[in-house]
Structures are given as C-alpha cells and as structure tokens.
Design a protein around this nucleic acid. Structure first.
Lengths: 333, 333
DNA sequence: AGGGCCAGTGTTCGCGGTAACAACCTCCCG
DNA sequence: CGGGAGGTTGTTACCGCGAACACTGGCCCT
C-alpha cells in the first residue's frame, strides 16, 4: 500500500472527483466549499494520508514558515533556555525553528551562520550570542531580513531583547551592601561577553553610588574551573567579606575553593551568583543569585520577530526585569 | 539599491547574457561551462547577490536538506549536548537542523512532533527522548521516513544510538564494591526513563554477580531537589556507606542533604554520579561520576541517519562506551 | 421576467529551479 | 572533405501549489 510517492493535491482531487483547487480550499480553509464536498475531500485526504508539500507552497507564497536561530553550541544554561523559549513561542504561532550553532562567536562564524540560514530562506533570524564580536558582526549584516539579537548589550545595532543585566547586578550588589559589607568584590565573566560587561559596569556603578571603593576585578570565563581559580586568588585576600560572582557556575567553583581554603560561607564571606540555574539551591551552601526569566525572553524575542515579519517596526530594545533570589550564601552567620 | 525582490536564476542569466540553465550549471558546478562564461556568470551572481531559492530547488529535486530533531525542552545536560553534536555533524554534511521540543515525552506529544517535522518535509528524524513513552510511540510511527532514536533503551523499535548505560552503571557499581563496601545503594531516575531503567538494572545485576544483596531503591526525577529528598531519606539509614546516584544533579542534592545531616563524603559515605556535567569536578566534594561522550553520540546519530537517507540499512544499534571519572567523592577517608 | 448577487466550483498561469534533450560549433580523423 | 565526437549552450517540460479569474446555477429583488 505504500505507493512510493507522497500524494499531491491532484491525487486527492482525482480521488474525490473534484478539482485540485477545491482540495486546496478544504485543506487551507480558504474559500467556500459545500459540506458534502468537504467531507469527500477530507476522506480522500485521509485515505491517501496527504501532506501538503511545503516546498511547493513556499515557492508560490514566498513564505517558508521557518525561523532561524544562531546560537552557541554550548550547554550554558542561559542560551539553552532561551532557545527553548523561542522554539516554544514560534511553534505555537505555526513557525518552525532551525538552529545553526557556532563554536566561538567571532565575526566570521556569525556571518556564515546567518548566510547559512538565509539560504534556507528563513523568514527571520534570532542571534543568541551575547558577545562583543557577535554584536560587531551584526553591524555589517545586511538589514534586508528581520533580525533580533538576544542579549546584544546596551547599544546593539539591531533590535534586541535581554534580561536587564544592570538591574540584576545592581540588586545583587545592593543586597550585599545592605548586609553591612564595607565593599563587594566581583568575579567577572569574559571581557568580550556583553553580559559580563554590563554586570561589571552595574556593580561598579552601584559601589560608586554608595561611595564605596571598588576592589580589583578577578576575571573568569563562566566555567566552574575559572571560578575555582578565582576563589583561590580571593582566598588570600585579608579583608574579603562579600563577593558578587557573574554566574552560578563560577560561583560553584569559588565556593569549592573557599571550602578548601577553610573559608566559611556565609560565616566568613557572603556570595551572590547570577542566573539561578536549577542546581543553585543545592550548592553548599545554597546560593543567593539573580534569576533571569529566559522563557519570557524567548517569548518576547519571537514576538519582536513576528512584528518585523509583519512589516511593523517595533521597539528597538526590550528588557526583562531580573529577580534576586536570597538563599543561605548570604544568610545569617 | 535594494530592488525589492530576491534575484532569480533568470535575472542572473539576463545580466550575464546567457540562458538560465548555464547559470544553474555554474552555481551547482554541474556540466561544463567555459571559463569566460563562468566568470561573467559569477560576476552577475555577485552583483545581484543571488541566492538560490531553496523551495524551488526542493520542489524539483524532492530533497530539502533538512533534518528534524525531536527533543525535550529541558536544559538537561545530556539532551542538550546531543543536540549540538547532531547539529554540528549535520551542518558539516550540508544539512540543516530544525528542532521541535516537547514538554513531556508522552506518546501523543512525540507523535505530533514527528508529524510537525514531516510537514516540513525533513529528510530524516532524530528522536532524543530516552523515555518509555517515547519509545512506545516510535512503535506506531510510520516507517516510511528515516528515523533514529537516541537513547531508546535496550529494545528500541527503530535504529538507536546511545551511550552504553549498563556499561557505565556497572563501572560505577564495581568501583564502589572494589573500595570494599558491603553493598551499594542506588538513587534511581524516573521509572519511565529508559536510561534510568538501564542504570538501575545494571546496578542490580552487578550486585547480584558479586553476591551482594541490593538495598531498596530510592527514586528521584533527575532534579537536584529530588536528590536532596533522597539524601534526607538515606541519611537515616544506619549501615549506609556507598551510594550510586543515577545522575549528577541528583548527586548534588544528595551531597547537600548529607552535609546538612552531618554525614561526611567521602569520610562516611562514598558517592558516585552519572553524566559528568562540567560542574561535577567542583561539587563538594568533587564527584566521581560516569562520563558520557554526547558529541560522539551526536556524530554517530547523524551518520546513522545519513546511511538511511542514502537508502542503506545500517546496524540497528550502536553503543558508545562510558568512562568512569574518579574524584574525591570516592577518595580516601 | 430580467438582472444582479453570491455560494460553489473549475481553469489557467507562474513561482524558481533541475532534468532531459536538442542544437550548435570546433576539431580531428580517415 | 565529409562525418563523428565532444564540449558548450539553449529549449522545453515539469515539480506541487495558490492567486486570479471565469463559470455555473439558484435566489432575491425590482
């Protein structure tokens, strides 16, 4: 019974004894069709297990119903969550999502990824690459296709959605200051990551506003390993009482280093992270951190893209508020 | 200069003063074209920034160059890593990947996801859903499209690639037994996850082979929270000295519970996890665990699919070996 | 009674490519 | 010097679908 080829509109039409146009009307619910005819057509569709040919449809309508996402091929919590947020919103609206990952977010790789997606005739592109180089490459990208950046930094050259990094970092820093600390140290993310820059800048500014001197910065690369190294360095600082770490993974490494160095958290030092990964509540000790609603980011990203596809020119920036989650790492001593 | 529409083969042909067929030959490097003509065509292509229309091509060739992946919309380390492994291998071979995520892997959701992908005219489908229900739904899926399951359990109804769960669980259990423990407790994953079943079965079998009685099982849901709960339960067991936890996230929660209960790891109890998430080396204490090479899984998955697309009937199962990574959680007391 | 109007249906055309074949030109050979 | 070979180019026929328009018949209105 597997007759080799997929059934076409015409096949269905022949079986139902109507023209292919009538079948098209039934399938797409466009134009009037009598109940009797519709039933016959539907039966034929069922019998042949007809599936519309997306290529043919795309060819004639000029719309593929596909969105492209450029993402890092990492399993970093943020990008992965955002991807699923976008995919979910897109699917609900009848779009499908194809991904192209880049190992390292340099200008060339991003440009290639975008070109790859364009060859797929995607209707719009999301770039999840909160990275300076990525942002740079967006400047030179042709602007003849709907495009949205996720986490593109303060002055992205294209419309952008992101969690408000400054807001989050400010909350974290002020939380620590409110606990009475003289100052707050910072373990930053990689310089070339915009989110790292934003968090660092907000931390610095918050200290300044409170007339507190900023200690020197320790820099990591988001990994637990680098957080561990940072922790070893900080463990040698005499008057260290509070640390704001730019993400949870690094905070984990830092906690480990502190444990090994005999530094108690929260007894001797208070620590705040960023991201609120699902595991953060079970670190030792449970980590105070800044939660980012990536699902919401994904949703708004899709909405933004949909607006552009519809030909409207939506707001250039959209920030999602961050939320401080207080746990034991900044608890009573 | 943005002339509204994308240039077509004919536009290029007109500009270069040749027929559209010649342009096609140049673009696809099929058939002979004189050097002079090729140069003229290429110049025209460049000038108009011509991009082949994938829909038109797909319509006539019947090939879309798209692969579909059904995945969980979770940020679980395993599925996410596998996805990127597949995407990478696929892109190298000129395929692009579209994803469809399912919140919970029940039969209906999987079937819908597959149908959604088929409407996209994907050339092959990967189902990353190491779940009993997913496996079930694969039994009833039409077999007229190349399909591969990742982590589909021992008797998947379709070709399957996976890390050898039994092998990994056996290594973990034997490692603990070799350290002299009377027995090994097990915190298992959800019953309806095939990997959880495999790990549990291998643990039980290994104990049996060593003529050791298996303690009762504690069951979690992969989350740190459930691992924490399991840890609280186990903390009340008198003769507990060794625990094999079915994944690293749960192991983290368990470590936390043990810490709160005053149980030392590795001093009082030895703990082994599964997955080797990047953070595992920085747990307190660093976690002995079983590493799974998801990139390799992704690579082989794509290869499998490519074979099927090429019309060959490849091996039904392909297992990737697991590796035991020994760290402090099973270290000297 | 004649003329819209409209629901229901069919016909034609073309989207942008590739496959298949035809046509032309050169060159070389007997 | 005729003819076949082969390299180079063009022509034509679809692929499956939807847009646009044409057609049919009944019904209502004047």
């Amino acid at each position: 019974m597997t007759s080799g080829k997929q059934a076409s509109l015409t096949d269905v039409a022949d079986l139902a004894g109507v023209s292919h146009m009538t079948v098209s009307r039934v399938v797409n619910k466009t134009g009037p069709v009598s109940a009797a005819t519709r039933a016959r057509v539907l039966a034929a569709v069922e019998k042949l297990s007809y599936r519309p040919n997306s290529a043919a449809r795309a060819l004639v309508t000029g719309k593929t119903g596909i969105l492209g996402v450029v993402t890092l091929d990492s399993t970093l919590y943020g990008p992965a969550s955002t991807l699923y947020g976008i995919e979910h919103a897109a699917r609900e609206a009848g779009y499908s999502v194809t991904i192209t990952s880049v190992g390292t977010p340099n200008t060339v790789a991003i440009a290639e990824a975008i070109e790859t997606l364009r060859r797929q005739a995607v209707e719009g592109i999301v770039v999840i690459a909160p990275h300076a180089a990525a942002s740079k490459s967006l400047e030179v990208v042709p602007h003849d296709i709907p495009l949205v950046a996720v986490g593109g930094g303060q002055q992205a050259p294209v419309p952008m959605i992101a969690v408000d990094q400054s807001d989050g970092a400010r909350r974290a820093t002020e939380h620590l200051l409110a606990l009475g600390h003289k100052t707050v140290w910072h373990v930053a993310g990689p310089v070339d990551w915009l989110e790292a820059q934003d968090r660092e800048a907000a931390w610095r500014q918050t200290l300044k506003r409170h007339r507190v001197r900023a200690p020197r910065i320790i820099r990591g690369d988001w990994s637990s390993r680098s957080g561990y190294a940072a922790g070893q360095v900080l463990a040698r600082e005499k008057d260290l009482t509070a640390v704001f770490v730019a993400n949870d993974q690094m905070a984990l490494g830092l906690l480990r280093a502190f444990t090994e160095a005999g530094i108690g958290v929260p007894k001797d030092v208070h620590v705040v992270g960023f991201d609120d990964v699902p595991e953060a509540a079970y670190f030792s000790p449970p980590l105070t951190t800044v939660r980012q609603d990536f699902i919401e980011v994904g949703r708004r990203t899709f909405r933004q893209l949909a607006e552009q596809i519809a030909g409207r020119e939506p707001a250039a920036r959209d920030l999602v508020a961050a939320e401080l989650i207080v746990r034991e790492s900044t608890g009573p001593r």
